[in-house]
Amino acid sequence: MPHQNPFIDQIRQAIPKMRKSEVKVAQYVLNNVEAVIHMRIVDLAQEAMVSEPTIVRFCRALDLNGFQAFKVRMAQSNTVHHSLGQFAIAEDDTSSDIIKKIFDTSINQIITTRNFLDSAQVAAAVDALNKAKRVEFYGFGASGAVAMDAMHKFFRLQFSTVAYSDPHMQCMSAVTLQKDDVVVAISQSGRTKDLLHSMEIARQQGVHVISLSPPNTPVSDLADLPIHVDIKEDTDVFTPMTSRIAHLLVIDCLAVGVAQRKGPDFDEHLAKVKKSISSLRHNEKSNK
């Protein structure tokens, strides 16, 4: 028996109530589920041979507020979900069971994040970062660990950069930022009050604020360059797991994008950085 997909079933059931042009969109989506996840609204309109407003009406016919929300539902419904929050640990689970559940859930959630990630959002963030002289990373808890990792990556890229997970330090630092500087605000929930306060101060300074957070949350709405990362986790039982990994991967995308913009001449600088820390590593030959 084939695996049932509730969202695909919802689209099929909604077709009788749709306009003729919206039905064309529905039929294209049903026949091209994998491809649609990676499309922009202009691409889907062209392939389904309808207008972009028709795509928006199609989304609203499914009780969604727009094309981005539709893509999220498509990506989520196309992934085999487990539970910890997404997967459940039983008392008699072996270490092998726990390993499989955690890895399988993380892999599936990361694929969902990749499919949902808006390349235009990432490109806009890379543009802002590439022009910045100073880049600051703000986050609390597990997001603070992501901020620290991001600081290390961007320090290697010759940025004046720092990571703060203390609200007072965030505020004091944000007020000293200048135009074209960048703040990257990282939040698994998108609703952290102290982070929002720091972002407000940064915005008042006229700097770009990039967010890594779920869509339609206060953090995402406040940022002028939001990057949507939406992973549901049971943080009442466990600290954020997969969302932390997903945020790290998005930071990697931003760092690689910036390094690419710096051109091939920048490779010499990275080689010098690598050489500078090579003496800190144990040499296997010296142990023989």
Score class of each variant (00 low, 15 high):
G190T: 00
A259V: 06
K133H: 14
N287D: 14
V162I: 15
L270H: 01
A163T: 10
A142W: 04
A185V: 06
D92M: 13
Q68T: 15
D230G: 01
N108W: 12
A125C: 06
V36C: 01
R57D: 12
P2G: 09
M151Q: 12
H282R: 06
M39N: 04
H152Y: 13
V36K: 00
V23H: 07
L177T: 15
A120L: 10
Q170I: 10
T94A: 10
R261H: 08
L212Q: 02
M148T: 11
I245Y: 07
S95Y: 14
V175Y: 12
R57S: 15
K71D: 07
I231Y: 02
D43H: 05
R73S: 13
V162F: 08
K179S: 11
E47I: 11
D104T: 15
A132H: 02
A48C: 08
A271D: 05
T79K: 05
D221Y: 10
E136Q: 11
A147C: 11
H82G: 06
L64D: 05
L84V: 02
L62A: 14
V258N: 05
R156D: 04
T242H: 14
S83Y: 10
A14W: 01
I231A: 02
S286G: 03
M39W: 04
F137G: 09
T79C: 08
R19I: 05
A69V: 14
Q121T: 08
L212E: 11
F70D: 09
E268R: 01
G257D: 09
G85N: 15
V50W: 04
G263E: 13
L117K: 06
V33N: 09
G190M: 08
I15F: 00
V182R: 04
N115V: 01
A75Q: 06
D92K: 14
A255G: 04
L157R: 08
R281V: 14
G139P: 01
S119Y: 04
A48Y: 08
F140A: 15
L270S: 11
Y138W: 14
Q205W: 08
K193E: 14
R57V: 07
V207I: 09
C59W: 03
T239A: 14
D230W: 11
K131C: 13
A48G: 10
A90M: 14
A202F: 14
H152L: 08
Q4T: 10
R12S: 05
I11T: 04
V175N: 05
N216R: 07
M39E: 03
V146L: 03
K275E: 03
F7C: 12
I102D: 03
A163Y: 13
I111L: 11
C253L: 15
T192Y: 12
R40C: 00
E91L: 03
D180T: 03
Q4D: 15
P240E: 07
A271F: 12
T113I: 08
M49W: 05
H247K: 07
